[in-house]
Design a protein around this nucleic acid. Sequence first.
DNA 1: TCGGACTCGTTCAAATTCGAACGATAGCAG
DNA 2: CTGCTATCGTTCGAATTTGAACGAGTCCGA
Lengths: 144, 144
Amino acid sequence: MVRALSDDELAAYFALRGAGDRLQRAVTQQLRAHDLTEVQFSILARLGSGSDGIGMSELARGLVVTKSGLTYQAGQLERRGLVVRRASTDDDRVVLLHLTPDGKALLARVLPPHITLVRELFIDRIDPSDLAIVRDALAQVARD
Amino acid sequence: MVRALSDDELAAYFALRGAGDRLQRAVTQQLRAHDLTEVQFSILARLGSGSDGIGMSELARGLVVTKSGLTYQAGQLERRGLVVRRASTDDDRVVLLHLTPDGKALLARVLPPHITLVRELFIDRIDPSDLAIVRDALAQVARD
DNA sequence: TCGGACTCGTTCAAATTCGAACGATAGCAG
DNA sequence: CTGCTATCGTTCGAATTTGAACGAGTCCGA
């Protein structure tokens, strides 16, 4: 038998979905001004967070996209000169994706308003003393 | 000047995205056994939560989908006999979407495992004494 | 070293999604 | 009542996303 969700539990679940949707909508809309989709931004942001390139499969696992979807978007970004593909020296099967200088420059333009948006919609709406609780709780959900 | 996000804030942001993605992946995979996409399930679930039909635009606003996307999916569900379109008596522009008996039956089959999944991945991972805090915090984010 | 199982990134066709139209209806100020 | 504006759901073409192949490379036990 399945135990139904209590009102509190249901409300928490809806709040999680609602918060995610809300943030996604706002981010998507903001990115459109820079001709970037959410997926494309995620790729650039992930590449920008480290100094080395990232393999396609590893990248696809981190984002919410299939390998073939990433192949397509990597092509779009490469066509715009924001990203380059390079062969891996370690593993001949692997294609490493790297940011170009143009890609870094675009990321540098897009990131500040993105951070402002996250602050406005997420961080600033949570009581600072609750933030650690929320962070830890959500991290448990995200955990594999 | 944009104030950067602190480590804690950034971790909270990533945790939110991670939690949402994690849940979405698991739900999507589970629904595939019933030949339903996440969007289709959302439509059925929303229709099932009330006894009256819901207008297309109102429905689209609640879900993360455009009006034209909803037109398409409503067509898919109608083709499978899970849903029917009816004219609204109040407003001739409005098309009300209703669950059919088959739609209700399918929803009744899909909901229990869905609830079990939500419990397993979300509710049970959060300390019960923290749940209210998480719920309220996320509700603030979801708020318009 | 061989062979089988796995992972890599890509290709392809099909399914889905989007945004910009559009015709029809509602609501409201004058 | 008459315009004007907004909202309704749909259509259309283009863009994106998916899943199932595939060829190539890696790994590991026999």
